[in-house]
């Protein structure tokens, strides 16, 4: 049952991602992205990474997406004009890029498979609760955790500075 669900969410996620990338209208893209993140959260739950799944909903599908929507509304971005379409007019560039994707995709897959070959992974269920992640976070990763808070503060200040009207 979970396996079927996993493949189902995968397919939905794939479709949503393609929708985001290929759609001309930014509003639709944002909505598609929210849907994609929801699916991803579901996949995290299926992988028993409950804490990450909750965060995915809260942070990504919640906060970040609201931010995106907000900016799209604020800028009142119109859909792309149809002429150049999705594809950049430079043909040679497109050719090179296509080559790059194919190789990138193949290499990514290849790396994953290689990683499996070198260290064969067992399905190790029963790990990933909030308690587990919290323990790791507040023991071995305490310093990075604190630094992350500093990073957020810097981002906050930077955002205010960038977004405010010219003095």
């Amino acid at each position: 049952m979970t396996t079927i669900l996993f493949y189902l969410f995968s397919a939905l996620l794939l479709g949503a991602a393609l929708f985001v990338v290929l759609n001309r209208n930014p509003i639709y893209s944002v909505v598609g992205l929210v849907f994609a993140f929801m699916n991803l959260a579901a996949m995290y739950f299926l992988l028993e990474a409950y804490f990450i799944g909750v965060l995915q909903v809260l942070v990504y599908a919640g906060a970040i997406m609201v931010l995106f929507l907000f900016v799209v509304m604020l800028l009142n971005v119109q859909p792309d004009r149809p002429h150049p379409g999705l594809i950049h007019p430079d043909r040679w560039w497109f050719g090179i890029m296509a080559l790059i994707f194919v190789s990138l995709f193949l290499l990514l897959i290849g790396q994953g498979v290689r990683a499996l070959l070198t260290s064969p992974a067992e399905d190790a269920a029963g790990m990933g609760s909030v308690a587990d992640v919290g323990e790791a976070l507040f023991t071995s990763f305490l310093l990075p955790f604190e630094i992350a808070s500093l990073l957020l503060t810097v981002a906050l200040i930077g955002t205010v500075f960038l977004a405010k009207k010219k003095v």
Partner: peptide
């Protein structure tokens, strides 16, 4: 999940 190591999830955090 497949290595049974919670560090990966901390990284995602």
């Amino acid at each position: 999940r497949y290595h049974g190591n919670v560090n990966g999830q901390v990284f995602v955090f």
